[in-house]
Amino acid sequence: MNFRTLTAAELHYEISALQVEYADLLDDDRLEDWPELFTETCLYQVIARENADRGLGVAAIFCTSRAMLVDRVVSLRRANIYPLRHHRHILSAVRVTAVADDLVQAQSSYLVLQTRADGATEIYNAGKYLDHIVFAYGRLRFSRKIAIFDTNRVDTLMVTPI
């Protein structure tokens, strides 16, 4: 697939569909399928805005391969202890910021709502995604996904990916 041959509307549709699929996998707790949306050598980073703005590298989650994403999921399933929570991603303002033959860059805003076991829902994390998207092995995948979150103060802990 050559991204430059797509119309702006087609490109926007493709990118949005990938974003929605991403959010669905997380919100529906199909986490084992989530790494499949990335390339093998991907970069996935969830970083506080206060660090990103200062050019400091410490991130809440920093994975430099799809295997590390798998490890996160396995750890969450088998090792980590955390309370039952549901997350819901609200995506908006998806826009393509750069197009090359084989790479699309996109930016979007997101909001993650969190529902605790007692049924109360709160805003958990707000931020923006900076994505690099490629066509690999028959489908669109993220070669890079950076979530920069405004919510510098994380409510208790962060176990599921953003």
Binding site: A48, E50, N51, G57, V58, A59, N152, R153, V154, T156
Partner: peptide, 11 residues
């Protein structure tokens, strides 16, 4: 050298 901050609010 500084590498960054992380904050968490614990109830």
């Amino acid at each position: 050298k500084l590498l960054g901050d992380q904050r968490q609010y614990i109830h």
